[in-house]
Design a protein around this nucleic acid. Structure first.
Length: 287
DNA sequence: CTGGGGAAGGGGCCC
DNA sequence: TGGGCCCCTTCCCCA
């Protein structure tokens, strides 16, 4: 999920204050990515990823082309000021140190329309998206329909092979680029590419059920589904959650004014998915 | 149909 | 450079 348009680190503030979770306001990008076909469901991952078929991610790898860069003013789904929320812990706005999905500033948006490959300036996200296609060679868009079997035990070797074999410099790019061997994605750093490749090799295997994950912490979260551990408790009710993001979503249910607002009817929702459903149901037929 | 919970994916940042 | 953690987002399922 391209989220690079989210400038999360305006200043350093590593430790989150979960008392502020309820009063965060976020951008409500209504982007077509939500309608893109998704990858294999969970059941397909319950065994080693032998012979997995990976769908072609035809979406431009460069995040700025994501519709998420659209100007908030262009969307009916605008940010919502929740300063009046009854569960606001402090009443101060944006206390989270920029870790929210608040709309990027106009200046940031302006910068987002620059091609990360050649620096070309585009007038709109769509123009940038179209321009980015010019950087994509035919070979890059090949579908990986027959990914070689990769046992998790050899994941490290696979990563090494993939990175060394794919660290290339696109002919049209002024700087080094690292292309994934298994999908069309490309990254500016080797580390980012290696991180991505883990999503193909899935080196973290659950000892209980054998399900494989790309990151150790993903595996830890999964293990909680076996152990029943729920370390994230709601301060407003007795509920507890295994996942912090789920707690964050739950906290929205305690707020009278949810942070995802429909720009047409001003209804608010606790989750963006609910807002998307609402929009798709015909509230905003022009959108 | 809507709202909410559970589970998971993945990029970015910090150490 | 890599691990750990951050956050956001999505899908699925159920009430």
């Amino acid at each position: 999920m391209p989220r690079s348009f989210l400038v999360k680190k305006y200043f350093s503030n590593k430790k989150p204050n979960y008392g502020e979770l309820e009063c965060q306001s976020v951008v409500l990008p209504r982007h077509p990515l939500a309608e893109l076909p998704t990858q294999a469901n969970g059941s397909a991952l319950t065994c080693y990823p032998t012979g997995l078929l990976y769908g072609v991610d035809s979406f431009p790898a460069a995040a700025p082309a994501s519709p998420g860069t659209m100007s908030p003013s262009s969307s009916p789904l605008g940010p919502l000021d929740l300063s009046s929320s009854p569960f606001s812990s402090s009443g101060e706005e944006d206390e989270d140190g920029g870790r929210t999905s608040d709309p990027p500033s106009p200046d940031a948006l302006h910068r987002a329309y620059h091609c990360t490959h050649c620096g070309k300036r585009c007038g709109s996200p769509a123009a940038l998206s179209h321009h980015l296609l010019s950087h994509r060679g035919a070979g890059e868009t090949q579908a990986l329909l027959s990914l070689p079997s990769i046992q998790t035990a050899s994941a490290t070797a696979a990563i090494a092979a993939a990175t060394t074999a794919t660290a290339t410099s696109p002919s049209s790019s002024p700087r080094a680029s690292f292309n994934c061997k298994h999908c069309p994605k490309e990254y500016a750093s080797l580390g980012a590419l290696k991180m991505h490749i883990r999503s193909h090799t899935l080196p973290c295997v659950c000892p209980t059920c054998g399900k494989a994950f790309s990151r150790p912490w993903l595996l830890r979260g999964h293990i909680r589904t076996h152990t029943g551990e729920r370390p994230f408790s709601c301060q407003h009710c007795s509920r507890a959650f295994a996942d912090r993001s789920n707690l964050r979503a739950h906290l929205q249910t305690h707020s009278e004014v949810k942070k995802y607002m429909c720009g047409c009817c001003s209804r608010t929702f606790s989750r963006m998915s609910l807002l998307h459903k609402h929009a798709a149901s015909g509230c905003c037929p022009a959108q």
